[in-house]
């Protein structure tokens, strides 16, 4: 399908800036048994991949399904596979990823496809819960606030992984997730690592038990795909290695296992 741009006002997905030719964009349509549909899209300066997808929906294919919200790299909604790699599309400049004016956009890997570029994130968040990726309070609102030193080793370890935006890019990049349905995945384990290092959290033992089951942290092969692709520069592999160490120490001290 070929679409040419017509006169239109500035809007979401139409970056101001001079046009610099066109892009050939192949977009996945349908669910598992879908196909790629090709669009010709005007190429502008500073254009993001999300701009491209939005342009297609606004001007060429209104039925195109995709997910986004903030458009500024905070909400973690818009991750897709772009030219074979998982990326946050709102902060991925076309100029950096297009190959000879060509883009291929698919839904994220390792999650059930819903329609077109939208995947079902339910298994992703279920794994967060399975990894005890939630805070376990130890105080009430009547207690004084905990005093946590920002320079303590534990707080530094937690801070290193705390900025996860739940985009699912690491989950899609991970081969072990692809191979083993039980594997909790880098995002859930990274979350667990921040919690077992949070001195205010009362669920350390529960958390360590949760990540030490079949499909837990010990399934990680340390390939580092999560580190390579994480859009906010986190290092889940390091956190997972920390969980492995912590579980071994727990085994030796009788604190876990």
């Amino acid at each position: 399908m070929t679409v040419t741009e017509t006169d239109r006002p500035a809007e979401i997905g139409s970056e101001p800036g001079s046009e610099t030719g066109t892009l050939t964009v192949e977009v996945w349509r349908g669910k598992d048994d879908g196909r790629f549909q090709s669009f010709t899209v005007p190429h502008r300066a500073n254009q993001t991949v999300l701009d491209i997808v939005t342009w297609i929906q606004r001007h060429a294919e209104p039925a195109l399904a995709y997910r986004f919200a903030c458009r500024v790299g905070v909400c973690g909604s818009c991750a897709m596979t772009v030219n074979g790699k998982p990326r946050w599309t709102c902060r991925t400049h076309v100029g950096k990823v297009a190959e000879d004016g060509h883009l291929r956009i698919e839904p994220l890997r390792n999650l059930p496809r819903l329609k077109d570029l939208a995947v079902d994130m339910t298994p992703f968040f279920e794994k967060w819960q399975a990894a005890e990726g939630r805070f376990h309070p130890t105080k009430t609102r009547h207690d004084p606030l905990s005093t946590i030193s920002p320079s303590s080793a534990k707080r530094k370890a937690a801070d290193a992984g705390i900025e996860c935006i739940n985009c699912g890019v690491c989950h899609a990049a991970c081969d072990v997730v692809a191979w083993n349905d039980d594997y909790l995945g880098p995002a859930a384990l990274n979350r667990a690592w921040t919690l077992v290092n949070d001195e205010r959290d009362g669920g350390k033992r529960t958390g360590l038990d949760a990540v030490s089951r079949s499909g837990g942290c010990h399934s990680c092969h340390s390939h580092g795909s999560c580190v390579e692709h994480c859009p906010v520069g986190l290092n889940p592999t390091r956190g997972i290695a920390g969980l492995k160490r912590m579980s071994l120490v727990g085994l030796l001290t009788g604190d876990a296992g």
Partner: peptide, 9 residues
Amino acid sequence: MIEVRLYAA
């Protein structure tokens, strides 16, 4: 946890 023991072994 059996997984931790197997990992250690």
